[in-house]
Nucleic acid binder design. Structure first.
Lengths: 208, 208
DNA sequence: AATTAAATCAAACGACCGTTTAAATTTCAC
DNA sequence: GTGAAATTTAAACGGTCGTTTGATTTAATT
């Protein structure tokens, strides 16, 4: 799908505003104003407000299955190193795209939205790559056996999403008000990754 | 704050609909219809739709600090047992009130809502009780020292919220479609609690 | 029983909404 | 340069929204 400059501007503006205010509290007039276009352009280019949000999801749900597969198949690294890479890449990907991921969180809370099936399939693919990797590690004796991988992935996603969506609360709780937005983001990426790596290693590895 | 039967009916209906559809996609006509009252009653009893949602938060944010304090101060139990009780009570509390907690999640995503300060204070209080407990356990040698308690609490909250908000996706991923809603809820409470207990024990305890 | 206060109602208000319309303008292809 | 196609525009449409209004009904008080 090729978009022209106007369409891209609309998509970006919509993504930002939907993330901030949600779908229903964002009007096409808001989006058009932010994008510098006339309001009829939304319908002209995308057909409807509903199809606009679907287009954002379609554009953004770049399946990250390929990245995952590559990361977890890198035999130059140990199983632990690959697990650590998985966590780092995941956390950085979420934290570096706050708008889209806030939209994802809203979509997941909202039971009646058209992209739910797309999201489900996307998550299922990712999960199956991770599960295959953990299983392989278990069979080869690198990881412990009694670990619920789906719960583990839920903790990865849930923790990261929660930090991202409540980062200003977190900032206040940690007395980090002096940090700029990009400093805070980098701090959160590192600390969240480290925390999650510690958690997963603690349950997957045999104590050294 | 004492509410009459009509007001309670409005509060319940509003909570359910705000949880399902969000504040902006729920109209006062929807709420009035669900509650069996005339739409003017919303403004009459609560002043506005905005004040209605605030009233729900005020009513529901029963500070759980007292429950926490009691659970974590129960000296008839070991430190580990108290940690386990904390997890179980937290998870059950969230999972048993899906409507209110979906509203909480939405409120947290939404940066510009009047109750954010209330939520922040509420979370801060709870966090400080937990941190005091973990610190005490560390000082007495029951828990390991290098654990980020705020991150731990974030994992507790993030994981539980994520399961709750994506429970139908989770149900499908786990091939549990045959379960009724209440069976699924109970399954999730138990499995989430066990998973989180395993995680926290793995990072807090010295390997036996 | 009469009066006052509270609750309820249907209708209305002014605002906002997403989408459409028809005309105007711009761009493209020949 | 011309005509067709695409894009853009301002206005309009029909609908929904939260809140208010004033009349009516019900409940409480004297």
């Amino acid at each position: 799908m090729e978009y022209n400059q106007k369409q891209l501007s609309i998509l970006e503006s919509a993504e930002k505003l939907f993330a901030l205010h949600g779908f229903h509290a964002t009007s096409v007039r808001d989006i058009a104003h932010e994008a510098g276009v006339n309001i009829a352009m939304i319908s002209y280019y995308f057909g409807s407000k509903e199809k606009l949000i679907e287009s954002i999801f379609l554009k953004r749900i770049i399946t990250w299955k390929a990245t995952l597969t590559e990361t977890l198949a890198d035999t130059s690294k140990s199983y632990v190193e690959r697990l650590e890479s998985l966590v780092e890449r995941f956390v950085r990907r979420i934290m570096s795209n706050p708008c889209f991921n806030l939209m994802m969180m809203r979509a997941q809370i909202q039971a009646d939205i058209a992209v739910n099936e797309l999201i489900h399939e996307n998550k299922k693919e990712a999960y199956e790559v991770i599960r295959a990797f953990i299983s392989e590690g278990q069979e080869k004796g690198h990881f412990k056996k009694n670990v619920d991988v789906l719960m583990m992935v839920t903790t990865l996603t849930g923790t990261t999403n929660h930090i991202m969506s409540t980062r200003h609360h977190f900032q206040r709780m940690s007395n980090l008000e002096h940090l700029t937005d990009s400093e805070l983001q980098e701090y959160l990426i590192i600390h969240t990754s480290n925390h999650l790596k510690n958690l997963f290693k603690a349950i997957l590895l045999h104590e050294a």
